[in-house]
Nucleic acid binder design. Structure first.
Lengths: 334, 334
DNA sequence: TTGTATGCGTTATCAT
DNA sequence: ATGATAACGCATACAA
């Protein structure tokens, strides 16, 4: 790597003159600026990023800690984060907690040594279940700002970006009740212990309560044989005439199992799931989804952390990114 | 952030003594070591990573440039990369090219300024189609090593990690011919222009040629209405008795469309697709897949780049990570 | 207009 | 056993 020193030597100039010339300082003559620039491009000079970081005490790098990236929701959020980061000339250091508290703690610990200017985090399942917050507090005490998204921790005071979990499921359920006259709506959940899961269940309950309907909940926990459980439930409860799934898998599973049971979709059973862009192609009939704007969530998280880092008057805020009910073939036409 | 200087001041010691104490140098008395360590832990001292990087001229950071991360294959590879990086105490800077040459060039350019010690790259679709290699050459000329994986560029001499694309599809096709006595096997492709796509098609062709069977190829290109095209083809060609899909979507689509056409799976039509861990749950009957060991590919890529960076006698190599044919419900039992 | 000196935080070499 | 000094590459305040 070419350095200022090398350029200076070759040009018989001082390091600072070269530096100023490259930064287009008005103190330098057009003449030398030209000489400097020419040699610099010729030798493909690029200012050493590490040295700049040390000097400025800013890395322009954000630590991104995700539970997983194989879940398409988090993958799409990461995409949004990266898009916005590129636009604003930031880099991202990515760590995956694999849903484990210990790995999450370790990642935060390791990056809290000047590697990053701040964090974007969705906490691990384990961290959320155990309500562990010390590691996050520690980061904040270290004067590194955090933006939490999706998996949010109420006890921590920092910027947050969340989906309207309650409202989106409430409205989807209400749609099934009001527009499709469904009487026995089953909620399928495999994320009941997460903050977002709880809110989604509440949204469902509010809607059925309001309509005076009983609630039917199939909680799969971390079950391995999801298909069998869904099949069995639908088989044992033929009165179920609609399904709301609050994750991105079980809605499609419900469609497949219902077809196996010769249920007609959407005539005798409507299905609404959570999903993202590719999801709909993978089921037949195409599944209606509550579409989380995952990309927008990522962008918003990045915007927020940069705002915190650069704006003098930044105030802690919680942003809500609305979801969109995308009706397709697994529900009747309104 | 606490610095050595601050510790030194508080302890009435010199900076260098403190530094040595923390690094457990034998020149320092047990007595002062203890004092230093105690204050350090009390003030939560961590050596500034940026300063260490500047001093050592090593970042222990790898730039990872992927076409996308919403494709579950790349997501899983990223997971593998991250796992191995964590194990070896490396960080990863992630950039997404969004399949565009220009963004890929920009990412490499931006990180080639001391930010990383090397790169792991799967080239963008556009780069591969245009056979553009200059940006990669430039990186290598900059003395930054590269590991290419999956989307490989033959003209570039560097470490590579690839799947046995030819062999895996050859064997899957051969399985359908030999064990299931299929006579008219359709290959569905939407990645024909990629290096991996070409190899997979070759594998298919070799197998059908060898058996004296005609080849049937449905090339979807970047078509938007994949479902319709698959439906139409299967409808117009009822003699097709097996499908091999060389991506992770169209196999499931084929199953769904075949069911729509009242074809019995696997009795009258066998389907084998490409896939990863969650894929199988999303179809009914469960799809048989050529399972790319994406996680292993990521781990291998990371191991290779670290080997290049740390071993004196590292030689350029191409590693092949074998795939595994995972038979499920969309093929008959052998 | 150009050059000198200083410091970011760390480590390593060389005194004391 | 401890401390002073220099260096990594860059940017800037201050001289000249």
């Amino acid at each position: 790597m070419t350095t200022l020193k090398e350029l200076a030597k070759l040009l018989n100039l001082s390091v600072s003159t070269v530096s100023k010339a490259l930064n287009d300082s008005h103190e330098i003559s057009a003449q030398t600026k030209k000489r400097v620039h020419e040699l610099a491009t010729k030798l493909n000079y690029k200012p050493n990023r590490i040295a700049q970081q040390l000097k400025s005490n800013k890395t322009k790098t954000i630590g991104v800690v995700l539970p997983t990236v194989t879940n398409p929701f988090f993958a799409e959020v990461l995409h949004g984060i990266e898009t916005e980061a590129t636009k604003k000339d930031y880099d991202i250091l990515v760590c995956l907690s694999d849903e484990h508290l210990e790995k999450e703690e370790r990642s935060l610990e390791l990056l809290s040594n000047g590697s990053v200017d701040g964090f974007i985090i969705a906490v691990a399942r384990e961290s959320q279940v155990k309500s562990e917050t010390q590691h996050l507090e520690k980061v904040l005490n270290n004067d590194l700002p955090i933006v939490l998204f999706d998996r949010v921790v109420d006890a921590i005071i920092c910027d947050k970006v969340v989906v309207d979990d309650f409202l989106s499921v409430y409205e989807a359920t209400k749609y099934l009740i009001d527009k499709e006259q469904r009487q026995a709506i089953l909620l399928i959940s495999n994320i009941e212990e997460l903050s977002v899961g709880k809110l989604r269940v509440k949204g469902y309950k509010a809607a059925v309560d309001e309509a005076g309907q009983p609630s039917y909940i199939l909680n799969l926990g971390q079950s391995t044989d999801v298909e069998k459980e869904v099949f069995t439930y639908l088989n044992n409860n033929p009165s179920i005439d609609a399904v709301v799934s609050i994750d991105h898998i079980t809605g499609i599973v419900a469609i497949n199992m219902a077809k196996k049971l010769k249920r007609e979709i959407p005539k005798s059973l409507s299905v609404i799931g959570f999903g993202y862009d590719h999801t709909q192609m993978l089921s037949s009939p195409k599944i209606s989804i509550i579409h989380q704007k995952a990309h927008a969530i990522g962008e918003m998280a990045m915007k927020t952390i940069i705002s915190n880092l650069t704006l003098e008057n930044h105030k802690v805020e919680t942003s809500i990114v609305p979801s969109e009910l995308k009706l397709s073939e697994s529900t009747k036409k309104a």
